[in-house]
C-alpha cells in the first residue's frame, strides 16, 4: 500500500453548455520505477499507478496507461466538453490493487 496518496483535481465550478474546459489533475505518489537501487544495492521493486481514467456522466474523456517513465506525483492536463451539468469521476489504479477515486461536480448553465 502506497502511503500518503492524495488526489488533487482542478475543474471549473461552472461552464456554458458545450464549452471546452481545461482540467488539471495531480496525485501524490512515489511512482517507484523499479530501476532504482537502495543503499545496499538491492533493486527497489516497481510500484506505480498504471492507469488513469476520467469519465463525465459515464462518458469517457481520457484513459491513460502509465509506465514507469511517468514522473513522481503524476500530473495530467487535458480538455473536456461539458454538454450538461454533471459529475467528473477521476480514477487512478495502483500496481498494488488500490483504486483512488475522486469526483467533481460542474454546473452548466
Amino acid at each position: 500500500m502506497a502511503s500518503g496518496v492524495k488526489p488533487r483535481v482542478k475543474v471549473p465550478k461552472t461552464a456554458a453548455a458545450g464549452d471546452e474546459i481545461t482540467i488539471k489533475t495531480l496525485i501524490s505518489h512515489k511512482m517507484e520505477s523499479g530501476q532504482r537501487k537502495d543503499g545496499d544495492g538491492n533493486l527497489i521493486p516497481r510500484s506505480i499507478i498504471n492507469r488513469f481514467v476520467v469519465d463525465f456522466n459515464g462518458q469517457n474523456v481520457i484513459d491513460v496507461t502509465l509506465e514507469p517513465a511517468i514522473s513522481t506525483n503524476p500530473y495530467f492536463q487535458f480538455d473536456a466538453t461539458v454538454p450538461e451539468s454533471g459529475e467528473f469521476t477521476f480514477t487512478w489504479y495502483d500496481d498494488d490493487g488500490d483504486v483512488y477515486e475522486t469526483t467533481k461536480k460542474i454546473a452548466v448553465s
Partner: peptide
C-alpha cells in the same frame, strides 16, 4: 512512457504530463 486514449467528450485530443 504512456498511452493516452481520447474519449468522446475530449474536444482537443491533447494532454500534457511530466
Amino acid at each position: 512512457v504512456a498511452t493516452v486514449k481520447f474519449g468522446p467528450l475530449n474536444p482537443t485530443h491533447a494532454a500534457s504530463t511530466r
